[in-house]
Each structure stands twice: as structure tokens, then as C-alpha cells.
Design a binder for these strands. Structure first.
Length: 167
DNA sequence: TATATGATTGTTAAA
DNA sequence: TTTAACAATCATATA
């Protein structure tokens, strides 16, 4: 199953072969109508809805962006970092990506948890008193999130020393 | 002023 | 099974 992923819109890797620093930021086509924009970042109907958990690649991206910007402080194009990251990502072995996948897995766990709370809120907050509870929940959630994060960090040291598979 | 875009891959959710 | 959208970023450009 090829699953074609999202290569359709991307598939511009051919240009990635050339120095990314040459890529300028502008040169984009006219913005499509708001109604047609697929992302609609600003159109978040549900501000409480948790964002999707970053995949291992995005976790790696966060770290990669810093390094990339250090090596290429002149490069301001987000596409440049994306391409460079994509190439390196594929160049990395699974072992290298393993730590990032682990982080991504943790993010997913939190995402699922947030989704659970989000769904719960929807179920409970579908009626009146939504505002009042919303405020309370807001703080409550924040505290919980922090607590969870701390807890997660504390127990993050869980690592299996053995079980190493060499290629 | 404000928002959309570009580019990457992965993951999730829906059809 | 497959498709499609969305996650972060940030300077630029368009309306």
C-alpha cells in the first residue's frame, strides 16, 4: 500500500537538492480566499481543542531549526529549514530517530489525554454555565497540565538499557 | 492591519 | 484502504 501520504502537495524535494539558502521567502502566489484555505489557523472554532501532537519529525524539527538557524542565520525561509530537516531526517538512522519518536510518543499520550478532557468538556459544557465552568476549568486544566508535565518528566528517566538491536 | 503562504514528514481522523 | 488535512515556524506579500 503506497498510501501516497501527502507527497502530492509536497514532492518538491527536487529543489531541495540545491542549496536552500538560495530560496527566498517571498515569491508566493496570491493567497487563496479565506473560505478555501485548508489550514485556516485562525479559524479555530474550538479554542479548547488540543492541537495535534507533533510527530517525531516535528520534534526533531524543533531541535533542528535551532541548529539550522545557527549554521544559516541568513536563511529566514521556513521552507529552507523544512527541506534541510527532511533530508537529514531521512538520512538519520532509526536509532537516531528513536529518541525523537519517544518524545513524540509522549506528546501523543498527552494529546490523547487532552482530547479526553476536551471531549469531556464538550459533553459537560454543552449546556449553560459553560462560561463559569470554562473559567474554572481553564485554571484547573492549566494546573493539571503542569502537574502532568512534571510527573512525566520525573518518570521520563524510564529507559531500557538492554534490548539494543544493532543493524 | 491581519492573515495566508511556503516546505518538510508524520500522525491522526474521517470517508 | 485511502485520502486529506493539520502539527511549528517566520519573514514576506497580498488584500
Amino acid at each position: 500500500m503506497k498510501t501516497a501520504k501527502g507527497k502530492d502537495k509536497a514532492k518538491t524535494t527536487k529543489e531541495a537538492l540545491k542549496p536552500v539558502d538560495d530560496r527566498k521567502v517571498g515569491k508566493r502566489k496570491a493567497p487563496a480566499e479565506k473560505g478555501e484555505t485548508r489550514k485556516e489557523k485562525k479559524a479555530k472554532k474550538d479554542p479548547n481543542k488540543p492541537k495535534r501532537a507533533p510527530s517525531a519529525f516535528f520534534v526533531f524539527l524543533e531541535d533542528f531549526r535551532t541548529t539550522f538557524k545557527k549554521d544559516n542565520p541568513n536563511v529566514k525561509a521556513v521552507s529552507a529549514v523544512g527541506k534541510a530537516a527532511g533530508q537529514k531526517w531521512k538520512s538519520m538512522s532509526q536509532d537516531e530517530k528513536a529518541p525523537y519518536e519517544e518524545k513524540a510518543a509522549k506528546r501523543k499520550a498527552e494529546y490523547e489525554k487532552l482530547m479526553d478532557a476536551y471531549n469531556k468538556n464538550l459533553e459537560e459544557g454543552s449546556d449553560e454555565s459553560e462560561k463559569s465552568r470554562s473559567e474554572v476549568n481553564d485554571e484547573d486544566e492549566a494546573s493539571e497540565e503542569e502537574a502532568q508535565l512534571e510527573k512525566g518528566k520525573a518518570g521520563d528517566e524510564e529507559e531500557d538499557d538492554d534490548d539494543e538491536e544493532e543493524d
